[in-house]
Deep mutational scan, measured.
Amino acid sequence: RQGFVPAAYVKKLDSGTGKELVLALYDYQEKSPREVTMKKGDILTLLNSTNKDWWKVEVN
């Protein structure tokens, strides 16, 4: 499932696989259909980080 999360809630990881991955630093509950819920410690695939406030991710 793809959607947006606050950029301040995730940290980029060095995956070494060519995929950009991020680590969820905090729990986040989606507040609109365009967002996704994540739990602290989740590893997500980063799809787009051009917006400084909201990053598009895919929940694996």
Rank of each mutant, 00 (worst) to 15 (best):
R1Q: 09
R1S: 07
R1F: 07
Q2P: 05
Q2H: 09
Q2L: 06
G3I: 04
F4S: 03
F4M: 08
V5C: 04
V5I: 08
V5H: 01
V5R: 00
P6Q: 02
P6T: 02
P6H: 02
P6V: 03
P6A: 02
A7Q: 05
A7W: 02
A7S: 13
A7D: 01
A7R: 11
A8K: 15
A8V: 10
A8N: 14
A8I: 11
A8H: 12
A8E: 10
A8C: 13
Y9C: 11
Y9L: 14
Y9S: 09
Y9E: 01
Y9T: 06
Y9V: 06
Y9W: 07
Y9D: 02
Y9H: 06
V10L: 15
V10A: 03
V10W: 01
V10T: 04
K11Y: 10
K11H: 10
K11L: 14
K12H: 08
K12N: 05
K12R: 14
K12T: 07
L13T: 05
L13M: 12
D14F: 12
D14V: 13
D14M: 11
D14W: 12
S15H: 12
G16P: 15
G16C: 12
G16T: 14
T17A: 14
T17L: 13
G18I: 10
G18L: 09
G18T: 11
G18A: 11
G18P: 09
K19H: 12
K19P: 11
K19I: 13
K19E: 12
E20V: 13
E20Y: 10
E20P: 14
E20C: 13
L21W: 10
L21M: 14
L21S: 08
V22N: 01
V22Y: 10
V22A: 10
V22I: 07
L23K: 09
L23N: 02
L23W: 06
A24V: 08
A24G: 04
A24Q: 01
L25A: 04
L25P: 00
L25D: 01
Y26D: 07
Y26E: 11
Y26N: 09
Y26V: 12
Y26W: 10
Y26G: 05
D27W: 03
D27C: 06
D27G: 06
D27H: 05
D27Y: 04
Y28I: 02
Y28F: 07
Y28Q: 00
Y28G: 00
Y28E: 00
Y28P: 00
Q29E: 15
E30H: 10
E30P: 15
E30T: 09
K31Q: 14
K31D: 06
K31S: 09
S32N: 12
S32C: 08
S32P: 04
S32A: 08
P33W: 10
P33S: 11
R34T: 13
R34M: 13
R34N: 14
R34K: 12
R34F: 13
R34G: 14
E35V: 05
E35Q: 10
E35N: 05
V36D: 00
T37I: 03
T37C: 07
T37D: 04
T37S: 15
T37P: 08
M38E: 00
M38P: 00
M38W: 02
M38K: 00
M38I: 15
M38D: 00
M38Q: 02
K39W: 09
K39Y: 11
K39S: 09
K39H: 14
K39G: 05
K40A: 13
K40C: 06
K40D: 03
K40R: 12
K40G: 05
K40E: 07
G41L: 03
G41S: 03
D42K: 02
D42R: 02
D42Q: 14
D42V: 04
I43A: 03
I43S: 03
L44K: 00
T45R: 13
T45Y: 12
T45P: 13
T45S: 08
T45A: 10
T45W: 13
T45V: 15
L46W: 02
L46T: 00
L46Q: 00
L46F: 03
L46S: 01
L46I: 05
L46P: 00
L46Y: 01
L46C: 05
L47I: 15
L47A: 02
L47N: 02
L47G: 01
L47M: 07
N48L: 08
S49G: 09
S49K: 10
S49I: 07
T50D: 15
T50N: 12
N51S: 09
N51D: 15
N51P: 05
N51R: 10
K52C: 09
K52N: 11
K52A: 12
K52W: 06
K52S: 12
D53H: 15
D53N: 13
D53M: 14
W54R: 03
W54V: 02
W54Y: 06
W55G: 00
W55S: 02
K56Y: 15
K56G: 06
V57M: 01
V57Q: 00
V57S: 00
V57K: 00
V57D: 01
E58F: 05
E58Q: 12
E58D: 04
E58G: 07
E58R: 09
E58C: 08
E58P: 00
V59I: 14
V59S: 14
V59M: 11
N60G: 14
N60V: 12
N60C: 11
N60L: 14
